[in-house]
Design a protein around this nucleic acid. Structure first.
Lengths: 123, 123
DNA sequence: CGAATAGGATTACATCCGTAGTCTTGGAGT
DNA sequence: ACTCCAAGACTACGGATGTAATCCTATTCG
């Protein structure tokens, strides 16, 4: 039921997911990764939009709010992955991996990890 | 150098990629998949925007144009895949595959195909 | 020749997105 | 009590997007 999360909004979600606990708006502002120079107003806008989209919940704490994700990162990531695979690869994952491999996107470690994963899936 | 292609624009690109030859606007309109009910005006807008973005080229054919992709599908798809993996998995492909697998996104055929692919990559 | 038509060019318009600025209100401090 | 500030609420604004409508012009049909 969660509407799509935009690229900028995702940065806010990542802060909350990695915090693990509910944060105030000021906390979120403080934890936005450097390089993403946002004013506190901008972060507040993101929080409000994410609330409206149902991606966050908030509980009152005195006269401010504590925000926490309404969905686990796992679920978001799984959904986005599926969208991409459906949109570009007809729903099949193998061609995606092939593409990543082609662009030197897979290290030897990745390959080993994937092989282990596949072995497990097959059993 | 090509700007990002939006979701709706992608439908037009797909028509041109799968056609293999240059098409007129009317041809594109005729080949937009059913279910995507677009007026011909909408398709023309997409063509104009894709031209402006550098994703298409056109050549004159009498008083109309023949459109063809300016970039191969392979390249677009590779770029989008990389974006997703970078954005959500820190650039590593293995967790992506794991997620797809978790949601029953991988068939037995997929698994076999991936294993063959990995074996080849390792050598 | 004059009217209808097929194409491209230009314009429209609501919504979303990135990035804030302004308004309002309930404490905190003097 | 009055002032100032922090926090949330509401407003703004240009550019992208989805989805067309309108305008202009060359060509075709009667």
């Amino acid at each position: 039921m969660v509407e799509r999360i935009s690229e900028a909004e995702l940065a806010v979600m990542e802060v909350l997911w990695s915090a693990g606990v509910a944060l105030t708006a000021a906390d979120v502002v403080a934890r936005i990764p450097a390089g993403r120079e946002w004013s506190d107003r901008t972060v507040k806008t993101m929080l409000a939009r994410l609330l409206a989209k149902g991606a966050l919940t908030h509980e009152e704490d005195g006269r401010r709010y504590l925000y926490r994700p309404a969905i686990p990162r796992e679920r978001y990531v799984a959904g986005e992955s599926r969208r991409l695979v459906d949109r570009l690869f007809g729903g099949r994952a193998a061609p995606l991996v092939a593409h990543l491999a082609e662009g030197d996107g897979l290290t030897a470690d990745d390959i080993a990890e994937l092989e282990a994963l596949l072995k497990e899936l097959r059993s």
